[in-house]
Amino acid sequence: MNIFRLAGDMTHLASVLVLLLKIHTIKSCAGVSLKTQELYAIVFATRYLDILTSFVSIYNTLMKLIFLGSSFSIVWYMKYHKTVRRTYDRDQDTFRHWFLMLPCLLLALLIHEKFTFFEVLWTFSLYLEAVAILPQLVLLQRTRNIDNLTGQYIFLLGGYRGFYILNWIYRYFTEPHYVHWITWIAGLVQTLLYADFFYYYFLSWKNNKKLQLPA
């Protein structure tokens, strides 16, 4: 564990907490994409299939449980909670998530480190995580008026990705044989998707104005 990975995990954790805070205390999920949240639930479910069979550390297992629990509870809130579900922008959040899942599954079947059930699903989760933010970014672009918590949620998620890249660079130079092309390329693609959002986020922060995206 290095400082970059810890920082990445903590910003990831913070992003989930910000979203849960918004949903739990304000009882609103306005501006949050259910499609993206469902994709994240699938990402964690397919990646952490080995939670019972492979043990890395208490920290790892605990974090896996937190990410699994939080992603599924966010989906539950948005779909079934009687007040929260009414604040969901159903008509704007129309991204077809099958268009993301199918290519990711095909790519995982073609490009993987080992052709085993767990390994292919694990690789699928990497590819899917890389593009899972897209429905959220599209929704953001459509609704345009973004409240602070939604903006902070996406900002923290992007921060998590940035720290993970620093973590990989650090591990590459400090650990022998640490080479994981699939993880790196998927992670890099994911981080690049945030670049545009970050640009406008910093612009609004610099000008001390509410975040607004161009049409």
Binding site: V56, W122, Y164, H177
Partner: peptide, 10 residues
């Protein structure tokens, strides 16, 4: 072990 090593991240 190698496969496990690549899975030690979240």
């Amino acid at each position: 072990l190698d496969a496990l090593l690549s899975h030690d991240e979240l």
